[in-house]
């Protein structure tokens, strides 16, 4: 591999001088004979929220899962191209996959807490690091829950099954679980699509707050959400990344017709 390029080929020197968390260059992905990503270039800056929008099935989730290599779990998935996390090749042979995934946390569309207690859920990753001391575990669980804005709601229910929390609480629990292992990047795959409006609002506030410490790549179907929380927005269609710009410009003055159609709802959007 060649030395990491400091900046991806982005239009107008958009990200010039910014530190990059994630980069993909010429990234193509096939499921068997079906092409899901076609020569995608993307750069995600540090400590910013980048939104990924586009019609259903355009490859947003596939792209997301290249950065923590969750696509490796799919048997007939082939990947060509360059994926970098903080400049390091994510597909290097000597790379430690668990370490990569620890640093690149992920939040899924459906809240998926383990069928254990609230605190055990958050402590899951910590136990992988060999943490056993009760006090330290408790401290870190509390810190993670605070960071996810859930502490006040569950401080008395730490021993309860996580499955008894509401959907919105479960989603924030899952974020706390990801934060507990001290990631640098958070991948979010339509994390608010199963939440009611109030939970969604709380969730969006959380994402904005998380921006101070983490780089966030957010897949969303909700245009208003992207407009509210994202600094940058990328538009994808049919496996290609068509446009990348600041959120303001994407929503007020997109360069491409397709982007505009999608944003204004002319292109069929699939709200779930």
């Amino acid at each position: 591999m060649s030395a990491p390029a400091p900046v991806a080929a982005m239009p107008g020197g958009l990200l010039d001088g910014q530190e990059l968390a994630l980069q993909a260059r010429g990234l193509s992905l096939d499921y068997g004979s079906r092409r899901a990503l076609d020569a995608v270039d993307l750069a995600v800056p540090c400590r910013r929220v980048t939104a990924l929008i586009g019609p259903s099935g355009c490859g947003k989730s596939s792209l997301l899962r290249c950065f923590n290599r969750l696509n490796d779990e799919i048997a007939d998935c082939r990947i060509v191209g360059d994926v970098r996390v903080f400049g390091a090749d994510a597909y290097a042979a000597e790379l430690s996959l668990p370490e990569l995934r620890r640093r690149v946390g992920m939040v899924f569309q459906k809240p998926n807490p383990f069928p254990q207690s609230v605190s055990e859920n958050v402590a899951f990753g910590l136990r992988l690091a060999g943490l056993r001391a009760r006090l330290e575990l408790e401290d870190r669980v509390e810190a993670a829950l605070r960071a996810a804005g859930l502490w006040e709601e569950v401080r008395d229910r730490l021993g309860e099954s996580a499955l008894r929390l509401s959907a919105g609480q479960q989603q924030r629990l899952v974020i706390a679980r990801a934060l507990a292992v001290e990631p640098q990047v958070l991948l979010m795959d339509e994390p608010a699509s199963m939440l009611d409006p109030i939970s969604t609002l709380r969730f969006e506030e959380l994402v904005v707050a998380l921006r101070e410490r983490y780089s966030v790549l957010l897949v969303t179907h909700n245009m208003q959400q992207a407009a509210r929380v994202a600094d940058y927005t990328a538009y994808m269609q049919a496996g290609r990344l068509l446009e990348f710009d600041t959120t303001d410009r994407i929503f007020t003055n997109p360069r491409l017709r397709g982007t505009e159609d999608y944003i204004t709802g002319k292109l069929a959007r699939d709200e779930e």
């Binding site: 923590n68 969750l70 779990e73 996959l97 668990p98 370490e99 990569l100 995934r101 620890r102 946390g105 992920m106 899924f108 459906k110 998926n112 807490p113 383990f114 069928p115 899951f124 990753g125 992988l128 899952v174 679980r177 990801a178 292992v181």
Partner: peptide, 15 residues
């Protein structure tokens, strides 16, 4: 076992 649980564990860095 729901696939979401497996993915959650892997995404947290579990082997």
């Amino acid at each position: 076992v729901p696939p979401g649980l497996r993915q959650a564990a892997l995404a947290l860095g579990a082997t």
